[in-house]
Design a protein around this nucleic acid. Structure first.
Lengths: 234, 234
DNA sequence: ATCTTAGCCGAACATTTGTTCGATGTCAAG
DNA sequence: CTTGACATCGAACAAATGTTCGGCTAAGAT
């Protein structure tokens, strides 16, 4: 490029540099160096890139990380492309079906499902369960749905909760109502009757905070590799 | 650490290095240098780190990228933590409600929602819509749900589709049945009657492939920054 | 007791990467 | 026509980063 070319394309080179950084990051999952940008955009000298990076920094579009290698950080990313805080691994503990206990949230998960962080108000301690059965269809939760459960000891009246019944040794998904010293576990299904149990056998394990359904089949949990087993991530 | 310390902790240092790289990447969204690993694990010399990295490479657990800075790549990542191919940006085009057209999928989206790539069989051309109304509750799709739509020109008999009615200038979400030269658009709601329309006014815009519901409120679409508008990512 | 090997270490070197500098050219403003 | 600002450029330098080297120690094998 000719020296000192002053026209509106000068601003385009800065846009090209920003776009290059985004493309590089999407492909390599790391930041480029000044010389990688230079070569990628066919610029003769790294000092040209450095010049424009300093202008971009003055414009508040990037941040430089001292003299560190690959130390260029974008302050703004195009939608859906930012590297930060993207997915939270939630342990998938299995299916919830009447008569079967689910493991404690601290148990070794069967798999992990990765939820975008932006979808979660509070990502701590969540776990995932597959719903078996149709007892909650009137709450728009169906057989095969994946539910994300927030472990809490109590729910609001009428909230949908994962409940452990100590006397029956079973877990169930129901709406919870207190009636005197009994608990009414209410299905959301026209043909099913509620279950009345003494309050002391009811252990709330958590409430449903999210429902995920893939109409083409069961949503794939994340890859199943864990460091202790050494199996490969897919 | 004492020189030549030979015991089972030698293998643990390699595991520590791998774990450090994962932690560093989760936090910084870039790979660490040899000296950053050295300092982070309180090792006296970068050559110790280099020694173990060479062992890890021989074991097939990492790959080195020539003599490049930050050139250590893990071949396996713990579940849910791999940097690659995580989120697909899907354009959020607005709400689907009777009487209101939705924009063409190519239109400028109102926002973007980021879906884990693993959840999508085919990520091409998908778009997201917010459901308004309860006409499809018996298909377990309710008011406020976010649906992911795959643009296709035809659906199977009885599939749930986003349909544009040219004569009424409205979009609707219904199950689609062919009856002679008419189309029956069937709500999934006990109190609603189907709509019969001439086949030629029916334009299938896509079918629902995923339903996402956040019981705490409306799922947040991804950040709203786009390069052309310059607004800040949140 | 001796030898071998793994692991650690500090120092130094090689290469990569970030940055500076002086020179040059172009264009708009005065 | 002159001046100043902007952009480019090659060369060189400074700092960061990857890698090598020789040495030391401890533990296992012989």
């Amino acid at each position: 490029m000719k020296r000192g070319h002053r026209s509106r394309i000068r601003r385009d080179l800065r846009q090209e540099i920003l776009a290059f950084i985004v493309r590089w990051y999407q492909q390599e999952r790391t930041y480029p160096t000044v010389r990688e940008i230079q070569k990628g955009l066919k610029i003769s000298s790294p000092s040209v890139v450095d010049y424009h990076l300093r202008r971009l920094e003055e414009e508040g579009l990037i941040v430089r990380v001292g003299r560190r290698s690959r130390g260029i950080r974008l302050r703004r990313w195009p939608d859906g492309l930012a590297p930060e805080a993207d997915l939270i691994p939630i342990p998938f503990l299995g299916s919830i079906a009447a008569g079967e206990p689910i493991p404690n949230p601290g148990a070794t998960p069967l798999a992990w499902i990765r939820i975008p962080r932006l979808w979660l108000v509070d990502g701590n301690g969540l776990f995932a369960l597959r719903v078996q059965g149709n007892s909650m269809v009137d709450a728009l939760v169906g057989d095969g749905d994946l539910i994300i459960v927030k472990p809490i000891p109590q729910v609001e009246e009428g909230e949908m909760a994962v409940v452990w019944l100590a006397d029956r040794h079973e877990t169930t998904l129901k709406r919870v109502y207190r009636e005197g010293d009994r608990i009414r576990l209410q299905p959301a299904h026209p043909a099913m009757t509620p279950l009345y149990v003494p309050a002391e056998v009811v252990h709330i394990q958590g409430k449903v905070v999210q429902v995920l359904r893939n109409l083409n089949g069961i949503p794939l949990p994340g890859g199943q590799y864990s460091p202790s087993t050494g199996r490969e991530d897919k």
